[in-house]
Amino acid sequence: MYSRNSFGSYYPIDSIIHRLNPILKIFNFILTIGIIIFAKSLEINVFLLLFVLLLMMLSYVPSKYYLNTFWSLRYIYILIAFICAFFNTTLTTCMTYIIKLITLVEYINILAFTTSPSENIYGIERLLQPINFFFLPLSKYAFKINSVLRYYPLFLTVQYKTFKACASRGIDYYNTNILKRISIFTKIQGNIRRLTSFKNGQIMFASVLRLFHDRRKRSNYRTNKIGFYDLFFTLFHLVLIYAILVERGIL
């Protein structure tokens, strides 16, 4: 029940995916978003899903963590099916949408489990550097993007702690029926959001105390040089983009 120690998204284990260069990881993620938005046919989406499953296996993170998110979105799959039935679309398009959602969520999961926040910040900053024509404070934006990406795990941590505090005073979220759960959740929602933004602000302040500066370059002790696997995975993404362009008739 209330025994989870951490919702920390990073899973500290040594695997191929953990050792990839973060700049290329974020670049591939941007390509993946493009693929998910523009791919129409079922085959390309299924290829992407199989690729994501391969990455999940190579990352050595127990599948329990991936299945958790998959299972918690079960109501949304039913909602998508209803919407598709309402608009009288075919079964294949409905399945494409569901597969797109699963791919996106699991890809974000893989990134969250295998990239630590400092690598994230380093990757975003280095990626944006060549196009920084206006000398904007890149480190600050990278940090803010990172805190947006980490908002949901932080929200879950704060929510968990709040429910534990409520439970010790007698109102147990995990032990009641669904109607009471909805009423508890709606009443305390505003407080949890306020606490999460407070905690986000404190994390920003703690990093400023540790000499984080908006404009200075940072180094990273974890990153490895670009290797064979980085190029192989990037190549796979580029092949999928080529397939989309062929499908749309541009090439």
Partner: peptide, 25 residues
């Protein structure tokens, strides 16, 4: 700040300040 962490592992947490000073790996 005892429960506020800027990194996801202990080593990340300790290395944050050194990374901000841009020391080598």
């Amino acid at each position: 700040h005892l429960d506020i962490f800027v990194g996801e592992t202990v080593k990340d947490e300790i290395a944050f300040g050194l990374e901000s000073l841009a020391l080598k790996k």
